[in-house]
Design a protein around this nucleic acid. Structure first.
Lengths: 109, 109
DNA sequence: TGAACATATGAGCAATTGTTCATATGAGAA
DNA sequence: TTCTCATATGAACAATTGCTCATATGTTCA
């Protein structure tokens, strides 16, 4: 017969966050899991920037950047501020920096 | 003519990590960006567990869990320890916990 | 050695995703 | 208004990915 681990499961199940929270957590990290978006966030880490400046920096089309900024904005990771024709984007809060920094700690090994 | 932002770009470019590092960073977060893997890591956050216990906990097949554990192991996020027929997995280091915690801070809003 | 249990793995498929292209919206200048 | 620059967005396509299924490897016990 297969071995038993109901005791362990009982304990772990109690500590595990809800499915919804774990789903949200995964969705958040999914957004960090793309090089383009990481680059955008890292650039905004330094200073607010308009869309075409980011496109220049990453050597990508305006459209591609705009799509990714929408993804980031929908996740409340960046926000935009209009100034004339341009829209300046910046990081929404300091969690973004913290998360990126934690990631860096891990790969520095 | 399009507006100019060479000064800003010059500054940001200096501060930006190398492409390779940003790529690695994205790859790392990509691994966190899946609900199944997040659940596995969260479970191991509590205690080391064998494959079939994780499969039971998440109500998924042994094969699916095994595939994901391989992904996590390849990224040095978990490691396995054989004990008889079973293989007990645990988190490789504390960065995993830190990253998950930082993510949680963000979604708690 | 053979049977049973635990885990790993390769191939295939469906679903997701990032970019491109074309086009739409929005704002300032003439 | 019309032109131009800045940005947003929908559709389509290629590439990636997570799961399933079948099967292989590895360990223990009889």
């Amino acid at each position: 017969m297969p071995h038993d681990h109901t005791e362990l499961l009982k304990h772990v199940k109690e500590e595990l966050p809800t499915d919804e929270m774990l789903q949200d957590l995964g969705d958040l990290f999914k957004i960090f899991g793309d090089t383009t978006r990481i680059k955008i966030m890292y650039a905004l880490y330094e200073d607010e920037m308009c869309v075409c400046a980011i496109a220049d920096l990453l050597n990508m089309t305006q459209s591609a950047i705009s799509h990714q900024l929408k993804t980031l904005k929908d996740a409340n990771l960046v926000s935009g501020r209009r100034e004339g024709k341009e829209i300046y984007y910046s990081l929404s809060d300091d969690h973004v920096k913290s998360i990126i920094n934690q990631g860096f700690e891990h790969i520095k090994e």
